[in-house]
């Protein structure tokens, strides 16, 4: 046993003597950009910026893929900044804008919160035609409804109308405390949110909890079905929310459209 141990120790020593800047680097994965190039059936979007919405038009995407099967689907996203400047002359009763809430970030958690103030801003700019939009862990739709299926394999989603019609759908709902935009007073628990209609079902695909601190992300791997205003259906599923460099809210999404 002593000889074997001696040989093992010697080998370990030989390995480290050549490692002025480290050994066993091969056990780690290097960051790369492979997630940013996607083809039919998969999408990738860096939605980590607090101040941007990213829009996707499923009809246009389907046309692009039909025309070119090698089309990089990640290029289908269009990005628009969230307005954060106060309106100089707002209309009375205008509810578009930034809602500041105090969250009990360092106590009971963000489920305990209180409204603090509001100021109106310009309307959220958006493209002429779009289906869904993502902002970090928030998702909204352009007049669609969404349902959760309970299935985790997107290829198992039946495309028969009975199944699709039988799901329980919810449309977008007004929200003023989940679309976190302004974080420069976060240490005091104050966060500025965009007042916006978001889809509560689709937004459940990525949950952010505080505590703990830093926040904990929990992904729902279920497949969601989207009912578009024209009566067509799409299946979408969040596959991953972390980039190859470890940045959260970089979304890899599987989709099927039309069903």
């Amino acid at each position: 046993m002593l000889k074997v141990n001696g040989i093992l120790t010697g080998l370990a020593m030989a390995a480290v003597l050549t490692g002025c800047e480290g050994v066993f680097g091969g056990i780690y994965d290097e960051p790369d950009n492979r997630g940013e190039v996607t083809v039919n059936g998969t999408l990738y979007v860096d939605a980590s910026d607090w101040t941007q919405w990213h829009y996707l038009d499923l009809h246009q995407l389907a046309d692009s893929v039909a025309a070119d099967s090698t089309y990089n689907t990640s290029l289908a996203w269009r990005t628009f900044d969230i307005p954060t400047e106060p309106l100089i002359d707002p209309d009375p009763g205008d509810r578009n804008g930034i809602y500041t809430y105090w969250y009990d970030v360092f106590g009971a958690g963000i489920s305990v919160n209180e409204f603090r103030d509001f100021y109106p801003t310009a309307l959220q700019p958006e493209p002429d035609s779009w289906t869904i939009a993502v902002h970090r862990n928030n998702v909204r739709t352009n007049g669609c409804e969404a349902a959760v299926t309970g299935l985790t394999d997107i290829d198992e989603i039946p495309d028969n109308p009975e199944y699709l019609d039988g799901l329980t759908y919810r449309a977008d709902e007004w929200n003023e405390r989940d679309v976190w935009v302004i974080r420069d007073r976060m240490l005091s628990g104050l966060i500025g949110n965009q007042g916006m209609e978001v889809n509560p079902v689709l937004s459940s695909w990525l949950r952010v909890d505080i505590p703990p601190m830093p926040p904990a992300f929990t992904m729902n791997p279920e497949v969601f079905v989207l009912r578009l205003p024209d009566g067509t259906y799409a299946a979408i599923q969040l596959q991953d929310y972390v980039s190859s460099e470890g940045v959260k809210c970089c979304l890899t999404i599987k989709y099927r459209y039309p069903l």
């Binding site: 480290v16 003597l17 490692g19 800047e21 596959q239």
Partner: peptide, 27 residues
């Protein structure tokens, strides 16, 4: 002679990637 290498990484279960963010190597 002393060698010590201390690494920190995050393991992303979804993509099965172990991405290193920190390594301190002292020889």
């Amino acid at each position: 002679y002393s060698f010590d290498q201390y690494d920190k990484s995050d393991y992303y279960r979804r993509s099965k990637r172990d991405v290193r963010s920190y390594s301190n190597v002292q020889n």
